[in-house]
Design a protein around this nucleic acid. Structure first.
Lengths: 275, 275
DNA sequence: ATCTATATGTACGCTTCCGCACATAGTCCC
DNA sequence: GGGACTATGTGCGGAAGCGTACATATAGAT
């Protein structure tokens, strides 16, 4: 667990030129994230932004009655907290840890300052990378909206599993059907049924809280067009950021980031359960 | 038709400080937009950005089979083409004129240059306003995704009519049921039925291509929470931009913008029909 | 005034997904 | 190894919305 932790495992950070990265690097804090943890709650000020390395996060829109839908997923290709650079310091979504793992976080203000000094010391690469990522996020969200409307649960589940797989180091995802349901905004029973079908067809195997993808190509065949569309567009917007294959040999430089426990935003009280 | 055209009828432009506005102002072109016109097509380079004054635009996600869904609506509170400032010069959506009217457009490159010279001559107000607007857009999109998933057609239609109303100078909207259906991503027949119900209840009145809202409060009662949520958040993000009441007395300054016909991106060929 | 393209009205069977009410089976804790 | 909690399996009635196939009405053109 203590080997090879490096902020550069996050691909946005890896895309920064050395000088810009060096400037931020002392301020990163490693955070270990258990499944289901809530990182942000609707309309709470964003203290930190998060750069996942092995964790997978989910941005959820939560309705008044507790029903939810995933707006976007965030893995090591992205960042949680773009609202910070957009100038609104809160956002109306919940952010939850979908698959356990680690991430690096940075105080919002630090990122903001660095973001705003465009053209100063540096090339403004940070600005460029983050704005491009924001557009990729927008694209992902708009696709989600359309997919929600037009595609069947099976198509959506396949698409969604694939995007998770792309963000995961292995082909096993640590996920419960309940979480998948809350993220897709459907009934848990529906997921049970569709997942059963996929397992029967030999595409996946699952056991209590874990899903293993056995036949990726098969999933792609059953997924809707949305998967490829988003992937293609993502690659176009962030070409240097999306090496689809394994993390490139990190120039290991023992990070001077501090390891912290976890920021614990209250999850109790009037707030609806995570899923 | 020739009275009182002013770019400042767009609220984003109205929010700019005088010096920044003056700098851009010679470059605005007035564009008159007929209903149904396509301004952008998926993945075409964005030559211009548009600041609607009386027109209402719609960002649509169009699937391979031609089915579509509105991702976001854009009226005089916003701008079409945020992708330009995000650094991707295309976007995967279609942009269509929903309600006829006018808008001012600006060459993408001009906006980009101005956007990127942050902290230079000016306060960077343009940057701030546009980034904030982008976040508002993101919020609107995420809400759309969730609403698509969880709310009934009637709720959605009410919500949607209200947002159109907020962007419209009068309480009559120039809209066909077919357009509404394509925008909400549902069957036209479904709209006919629900609209009939609303008309029967005395909330709206419609005739071939026109809808008049008779009882706004009634619509709000039938709309889902999404309407208020988005409105509130929008006001929070762009307080100086959202005067909900009529356009504030414009310091009329005969715009030195040129009046142009309409940019005509090809709508023929392999491209699916607008709706 | 007539014609035509377009907009709207209506009906019917069907699929998908929801809501509910359970039964069963893993995992973890003591 | 017993108990409790959580995850998963299953079934059934019902609602919402789709696809299809038409019928009718209206605006605008000639």
């Amino acid at each position: 667990m203590f080997d090879s932790h490096d902020p550069r495992q996050n691909r946005l950070l890896a895309a920064l030129p050395a000088d810009e990265y060096e400037y931020l690097s002392p301020y990163f804090e490693l955070v270990l994230m258990p499944r289901g943890e809530i990182l942000y709650e609707s309309s709470c000020p964003l203290q930190h932004v998060y750069f996942p390395t092995t964790a997978i996060l989910s941005l959820l829109y939560v309705m008044e009655d507790g029903a939810s839908t995933e707006i976007a997923g965030i893995g090591n290709e992205g960042m949680l907290g773009v609202a910070v650079i957009m100038g609104g310091n809160t956002m109306p979504n919940r952010a939850m840890v979908l698959c356990p793992g680690s991430a690096y976080r940075l105080k919002s203000r630090l990122l903001m300052n660095e973001f705003n000094r465009a053209g100063g010391r540096c090339t403004g690469a940070l600005q460029q990378v983050l704005l491009r990522y924001t557009q990729a996020l927008i694209m992902q969200m708009s696709q989600t909206a359309a997919c929600n409307r037009h595609h069947s649960m099976e198509q959506q589940l396949c698409r969604w599993l694939l995007t998770c797989l792309d963000r995961s180091p292995s082909n096993e995802l640590s996920l419960t059907q309940e979480m998948i349901a809350s993220v897709l905004g459907v009934r848990r029973e529906g997921i049970t049924e569709v997942a059963g079908k996929l397992q029967h067809a030999g595409l996946i195997h699952y056991r209590r809280g874990h899903i293993t993808v056995l036949d990726r190509a098969g999933l792609e065949k059953r997924a809707c067009e949305c998967y490829q569309t988003v992937k293609t567009e993502f690659d176009r917007l962030l070409p240097d950021v999306t090496a689809t294959d394994a993390v490139e040999t990190p120039r290991i430089r023992i990070s001077n980031a501090r390891l912290v426990g976890r920021e614990a935003p209250q999850t109790h009280g009037h707030i609806a359960p995570a899923y």
